[in-house]
Simulated scan of single mutants.
Amino acid sequence: MDVAPTPPAARVDVVLPCLDEAGALPWVLERMPSGYRPIVVDNGSADGSADLARALGAHVVEEPVRGFGAACHAGLLAATAPVVCFCDCDASLDPGELPYVADPVLTGDADLVLGRRRAATWRAWPPHARIANRVLARKLRARTGARLHDLGPMRAARRADLLGLGLADRRSGYPLEMVVRAASASWRIRETDVRYLPRTGRSKVTGTVRGTITAVRDMSAVLAHV
Rank of each mutant, 00 (worst) to 15 (best):
S92P: 04
R116G: 00
L167C: 04
R190M: 10
P5C: 00
P7L: 15
A120G: 03
N43E: 04
T6G: 10
T6E: 14
V83A: 05
C72F: 09
F86M: 14
D42P: 00
R188W: 00
P7F: 11
S203M: 12
E191V: 03
G69T: 03
V61A: 04
T214N: 12
R11G: 05
A132L: 06
A185M: 05
L93K: 15
G173C: 07
L112Q: 04
W122H: 06
D218S: 08
I39V: 12
G35K: 10
A157Q: 04
S34Q: 15
V209P: 03
A183R: 01
G96T: 00
D161I: 02
C85P: 02
M219V: 06
L163F: 02
A91C: 14
P38N: 03
G108R: 14
D47M: 11
S220Q: 08
R171C: 01
E177K: 08
D109R: 15
V28H: 08
L98T: 06
L165T: 02
T6V: 14
N43Q: 05
M178P: 06
D47Y: 05
A119P: 07
W27S: 14
D150Q: 06
A74T: 04
R118E: 12
R66S: 12
P95G: 10
L114D: 09
P198A: 07
L112E: 10
T80G: 05
I131F: 08
D218I: 11
D2I: 14
P64K: 04
A132M: 10
L114F: 14
K204F: 09
H149E: 15
V41Y: 08
